Amino acid sequence: MQRITLLAPPACLVTSISLPLEILNAANELARTRNRKHPRLQIDIVSQDVGPVVTAGGLSVVASATPNMIEQTDLVIIPSLWRSPVKNLIRHRWIMPWLQRLAKQQSLICAVGTSSYFLAEAGLLDHQPATTHWHYCDQFAERYPKVDLKRQYLITQANTIYCVGSVNSIADLMVHFIQRHYGQTIARQVEAQFSPEIRRPFANHAYVEEASKPHQDETIIEAQEWLQRHLRQPINLAALAKQLQLSPRTFNRRFKQAVGITAGDYLQRQRLDNARELLRTSNFSVQEVAYASGYLDSSYFCGRFKKAMGQTPLAYRKSVRGKLFKVI
């Protein structure tokens, strides 16, 4: 993911493009500190005309390209626009053909807030899950009955098209993209910089079309549920396989085929997610967090946590609580 395109029509909410851009740039610079040959992001700001564009807050951004000048891009971010989405559709009809062309090329397309109207108007969300700004959900559902509106989700994914209901949630989606393209360590470092105390993991509040269709291996579902219930205890995966009347080799093969990762990696993820939550919300010591997450050796836990998150458990706790204040 090297070429990023930011759409900037007049009256857009500039934070819905500036925030994801800053997050992506931070990840790219971290990648370049590890490898100076790693290419810089190529960034295009697109509007109907080249030149200054006045945003909803009165700030100006400079469009460097028009849609006809962008033949290919890896990711396009469409910002939320101020006021009536329907009036904006009429005012900016030039956007829809461009989005249709990008969708055919399988570019990642991310619509923030009311900009999901452009995707729906272009027919790109027919029979697909989508979300929009909460204030316009009823209007959206009435105007686009073919769209599977997910009111309770702030992020939806259907193939390469993402809809985000709020500016805050665009940060969650960008961290998800960073983890996919730059790795978990850089994602955690970026997360620590950009308000980790209010962030929720992508998987916790996103509707993903593929994820909504769970695998059908009932034995492996039983294994997943058992691992979740017993993650605080010492676990012998070979014994679990025997309990399920499978050989260890067959168990490992079926688990990876169904879930996409090994049972051991799945267990580690569950334990580390539990540890992160305890570090955020409890006053447990690091040793207590380790024990409550299934790690009998706190030094081993700290090593696993740092490898996965890019920082120690104490540093993580300080970063997520860094904006709390004391009453004097």
Rank of each mutant, 00 (worst) to 15 (best):
S247Q: 09
A263E: 07
I95K: 00
V62E: 11
G310M: 03
Q72I: 10
P20D: 02
M1N: 02
G113Q: 01
T5H: 00
Q224V: 09
L6M: 12
Q42T: 12
G310E: 02
Q184V: 11
R101K: 15
N168R: 14
S282G: 03
S80M: 07
E210L: 06
V208F: 06
T156I: 07
G260H: 04
T262G: 14
K104D: 14
F251C: 09
D172W: 02
R321P: 00
W98I: 05
V190P: 01
A65M: 10
Q257L: 09
I45T: 12
S212D: 14
W98L: 08
E277S: 14
R36F: 10
Q233P: 06
L149A: 04
V50Q: 05
T73S: 10
T132G: 03
K146L: 10
A130M: 01
L81D: 00
K326I: 15
I45V: 14
G294Q: 01
L279H: 09
A141Y: 00
R3Y: 06
R36P: 08
T156F: 02
R304P: 02
R269K: 13
S60L: 04
L324P: 04
A187K: 01
T132F: 00
A211D: 12
P214D: 09
I221E: 15
P79E: 05
F301V: 01
H205M: 06
S107I: 03
V286A: 02
G260S: 08
S80K: 03
D49F: 12
I45P: 05
S84Q: 03
L89K: 02
L6I: 11
A65W: 07
L89G: 01
F251I: 08
Y182P: 03
K150S: 02
Y266M: 08
L267S: 07
A171C: 11
F194V: 13
L59V: 11
T132V: 07
R93C: 11
A292C: 14
D265H: 11
L7S: 05
Y266L: 08
L227K: 01
R91Y: 02
V164F: 00
P145I: 05
T185R: 13
D49R: 15
Y291F: 15
M1G: 04
L324A: 13
R143Q: 12
Y136D: 10
K323C: 11
E288G: 13
